[in-house]
């Protein structure tokens, strides 16, 4: 049974000392590997035991603020195409100059995207969440194509290890959010710097 948990439940779920986190899946489910982020969130929702708030397909324009408000941390999960082998997982703070999320990076209405949303929130003295991207390196974003084996494997790893990732990101240490990491396909994202 799918279940989406609110912020209050999140704090309880992390033992009361962790950050509240929202996980936002981005992408196009009809375009091959491009829907990896959406698929991860869909499977987490189906599993029903994720203690973060789950959101799919953030809206473009000003409504992107809804994905960022009232959370200590927001993890976007999106396809990336940075030149790494397909199935590579990137865990990087946002905005990132080197790993650009495909869908989130393209969200724009009236020329208004993530950077503009953050600037407006700052101008309005809203609390800015810590932002991170879990990027899944894709093989192809061909419309109508099935997900590639490498990306399917990466999706499975993320879903299986999501509880560890969640614990990792809800720790309060700043370095967890600002240190970019990359995990090669087939390499378990464990150990130092992993989850």
């Amino acid at each position: 049974m799918s279940k989406t948990v609110t912020q209050r439940e999140t704090r309880g779920g992390t033992g009361g000392r962790g950050l509240s986190m929202r996980v936002v899946g981005c992408g196009n489910a009809q375009a091959g590997d491009d829907g990896a982020g959406l698929e991860i969130v869909r499977r987490l929702r189906e599993r029903g035991d994720c203690t973060c708030e789950l959101l799919e397909r953030p809206q473009a324009g000003l409504e992107l603020m809804d994905a960022l408000r009232d959370a200590d941390g927001v993890l976007f999960i999106d396809a990336v195409s940075s030149g790494s082998p397909p199935g590579t997982l990137h865990l990087v703070p946002l905005p990132s100059a080197t790993v650009v999320p495909r869908a989130l990076g393209a969200i724009s209405s009236h020329g208004w995207g993530l950077a503009e949303t953050l600037r407006l929130m700052a101008a309005l003295h809203h609390r800015l969440p810590r932002l991170a991207l879990l990027g899944v390196e894709i093989e192809s974003a061909q419309p109508g194509a099935p997900r590639s084996a490498a990306v399917e494997s990466a999706v499975q790893v993320v879903v299986e290890r999501f509880e560890a990732l969640e614990k990792f990101l809800t720790l309060e240490e700043e370095w967890d959010w600002v240190t970019p990491r990359r995990f090669a396909p087939g390499e378990p994202p464990t150990g130092k710097g992993g989850f």
Binding site: L62, E63, L120, A123, L124
Partner: peptide, 20 residues
């Protein structure tokens, strides 16, 4: 609008809520 928001936050917040 961002520059305006810094000096007129109440108006911008009102506009955002009206739109929402």
């Amino acid at each position: 609008a961002i520059a305006m928001a810094a000096d007129h936050p109440r108006e911008v917040e009102q506009g955002l809520r009206l739109k929402k």
